[in-house]
Amino acid sequence: MTDTTLHRSLPDRLDNPLKSAVLSWESLLVLVAVAIFILNSFASPYFLNAWSLSDLTFNFTEKALIALAMALLIISGEIDLSVAAIIALASTMMGLALQYGADTPTLVAVGIGVGILCGAFNGFLVTGLKLPSIVVTIGTMSLFRGIAFIILGDQSFKGYPPSFSWFGQGYVWWVISFELVLFLVCALIYWVLLHRTVFGRRIFAIGNNDVAAQFSGVRVDRIKFILFCLTGLMSGIAAVLLTARLGSTRPSIAEGFELEAITMVVLGGVSILGGAGSILGVVLAALIVGLVTFGLGLLNVPGIVMTIFTGSLLIVVIALPILFRMWRQRA
């Protein structure tokens, strides 16, 4: 497949910028998002309402926050399947801190701190011991959630203070929730980081050819380690938001989040093989996943059936361009 090899090299504005912008993955995602939005507003009379649309954002912000960091990690050629387990462990530790009378700032610090530590542990195993990230994070996934189960068993932590709940339930202005604002700010930061800094270019370089990157003076292991820490950090933040929103911690919290976050990343046009992708795509994909699940929810479709839609969306959106290319080559 010389085709994919070419696709994965780094072209620097070889095409007409306008033409490539119109034909890009992101514009396809915009079209899909608009189509689903219109379908939704026809399908349910409750959809086009400021408060409904605000509720919609709670559907995807926590997973999308993780997807931002996961995108960078996948572009660099690694993956982290343990993010949901990190949420579980961070949330459990916050609950534990609460039992010792921690106040809101301490709770947030514990959640984020545990997240970073877990990410650093993953990063150490992958870069320090040179282990494949997919197996490492399958292992730490069991380990992190396992620790949450050891601490909590079949119990749960409750009784978070109202000032803490604000992170998951509060509004900054009118219908604009804190979660949404935080997500938009993070998306902007990650966009700058990936597309406008040396660090971001190095991530692409590593994803395309980590040996060549190493020989060009890029500290491959250090960057990968930082990316694992970032993914842990975002999982910690997501743990704070989710715990605050639900108001309780169970060891089974956030089950399946890792698959949804990865779906957002891949749907957003990030190559699962590494080396290609954009933050804008990931944000749009998060919006699409949110729109689909929320719209189906308004139509009283059970959650488990929605997963059929997200799963099919993932495969169809990836398969269509490939089928199109094959069809064109044959014609």
Binding site: V305, T307, G311, S312, L314, I318, I322
Partner: peptide
Amino acid sequence: IPPIVVTLGTLTIFRG
């Protein structure tokens, strides 16, 4: 399509 993507998708489809 990379196997991990395919089976991630079919995992949710089959269970649904």
